[in-house]
Amino acid sequence: MAPIPGSGLAKGLAVTLRTMTKKSVTAPYPDTQPDLPPRTRGVIGLFEENCTVCMLCARECPDWCIYIDSHKETVPAATPGGRDRSRNVLDRFAIDFSLCMYCGICIEVCPFDALFWSPEFEYAETDIRDLTHERDKLREWMWTVPAPPALDPGAEEPKELAAARKTADKLAAAQAEPQEGES
């Protein structure tokens, strides 16, 4: 059936009129906070207790916006006659957010889970130098990092849980076997 001439025009008018009567989707931002999804790339938090100063993040950063200073300390041997161990101590950890392009590579490469995304985004400054967040500030952001979202139902168990369970099962089995022999 051939469409009636002008029916497309009428349809267009109907669409705009219907949209007008519906609630608009705009969120008036400063008045209402946006509902951000998990893993939003707002700001990077540093969990400095986990940091070993391996420098991987600073080296992988495409913008070279991570500054790390550290020094070595010797830890006296724990057992008498043992060897002294040396340890890296973090002096400075800073991210310059005026350079950062929020690619997240630093977070991906960190082998010790010391860097996290936080959804906070309201850290604009009037002076560009204030955008270089130092260690304390980065540590503060950690409090805003949300808990990781739950896995999908039926998804594979997380690797570390699976490994831990395996060990626990083995241990349980090892303990159970001698008991069986006894009885």
Binding site: T16, T19, S24
Partner: peptide, 9 residues
């Protein structure tokens, strides 16, 4: 009117 027809405020 234009805003609301485009789903804005």
């Amino acid at each position: 009117v234009m805003a609301h027809m485009q789903g804005r405020l």
